[in-house]
């Protein structure tokens, strides 16, 4: 049986924030409210949730950046809060976006500097840095300043930086944020290859297809609480009794369609305005009834109607709330 290399038990993290300009008031905000899970060796584990759910806070606690308020964490047998010095050489992390690099240095100089910060001997650096630049397809741009790089190139350089110390666990916080589809795919391919070579990956993302494609297991978190944790397949099956109806409606307003759906006791729906039409997405147990209701609505034209099985995104929105 694969051993668990991250154990999170009843972890809580709260912040104190100050509000007001003249009369400052202190407010206590609980970012993480007693979450427990574990990650097995060799897994790709996803943390999914809306903005402010507590994903980044969790990644920061796992990577020694943040001390929990209560609860316990073990990463590779170390407590990140108190044994951070022993743990840091064995892990690495990549935060999404274009930051976390020295833009005025070349790609090679960035990697060489971070390699020194990870105490990697120069002889190893001389071999590893060209290998990593090749892996992320930046060998031709090795001597260029990072400020001349595209967002995708910067993100790939971050991946190379995150692999400098050959980490046992790589943490990624929204690694594909802002990337074009080709760059995002390239990134996913690199992560899959890394995982096949034995690196355990813990990532947060907003992109459901990314999580579905990459992750062995996923934890949905919302408002600092764990909503569900399972394989993508099993999470989708939890909403398997539902069907998803998607269609376009014209000759009606958003308010009208919301009213009809409300009268039909359909709470899980989303209506988006698109030029002269409304794009409607509905979660239902018995799709036929809704389809006939839609076609019988007065003066309303129904176009491009489809009935599909729930995706991971549908499972997510059903469990987290909303459609």
């Amino acid at each position: 049986m694969t051993k668990s290399i991250i154990q999170v038990h009843e972890i809580k993290r709260s912040y104190e924030i100050k509000t007001g300009t003249w009369k400052k008031e202190k407010k206590h905000v609980e970012a993480v409210k007693g979450i427990s899970f574990d990650v097995k060796e060799g897994e790709i584990f996803g943390l999914l949730g809306p903005n402010g759910a507590g994903k980044t806070t969790m990644i920061k606690m796992l990577t020694t950046m943040l001390i929990p308020t209560s609860g316990s964490i073990q990463v590779l047998g170390f407590d990140p809060a108190h044994q951070h010095k022993a743990l840091r050489p064995h892990i690495n992390f990549i935060l999404g976006g274009e930051r976390n690099l020295y833009w005025r240095l070349s790609a090679y100089d960035n990697l060489a500097y971070f390699a020194d910060l990870y105490k990697i001997p120069r002889s190893v650096q001389n071999e590893r840095i060209p290998q990593l630049l090749k892996l992320v397809e930046l060998e031709q741009a090795a001597d260029r300043r990072v400020e001349t790089f595209s967002k995708g190139m910067k993100q790939r350089l971050q991946i190379a930086r995150g692999l400098l110390n050959n980490p046992k666990i790589l943490f990624l916080d929204e690694p594909s944020i802002g990337l074009d589809p080709v760059s995002a795919r390239k990134l996913r391919d690199i992560l899959k290859d890394l995982n096949e070579q034995g690196t355990t990956i813990v990532l947060t993302t907003h992109y459901m297809y990314e999580a579905d494609e990459l992750c062995d297991r996923i934890a949905f978190i919302n408002h600092g609480e764990l909503i569900a944790i399972d394989t993508p397949q099993n999470l989708k099956q939890r909403t398997n009794h539902l069907s998803v109806i998607e269609c376009k409606l014209s000759n009606c307003t958003k308010e009208e369609i919301n009213k009809y759906l409300h009268e039909a006791y359909i709470s899980e729906h989303e209506v988006q305005e698109e030029q002269n039409t409304l794009k409607v997405r509905i979660h239902v147990d018995e799709p036929q009834k809704i389809v006939s209701l839609l076609y019988n609505l007065p003066h309303i034209d129904v176009q491009d109607l489809s009935i599909t099985k729930p995706t991971l995104e549908d499972a997510y929105v059903t469990m987290v709330g909303g459609v």
Binding site: M65, R88, F93, N100, Y102
Partner: peptide, 19 residues
């Protein structure tokens, strides 16, 4: 802090004091 590298150097295995 602005580059986003403060967190990287703070949690690097090399002591922050040396950096």
């Amino acid at each position: 802090r602005y580059y986003g590298t403060l967190e990287n150097i703070f949690v690097a295995p090399v002591s922050f004091a040396y950096i």
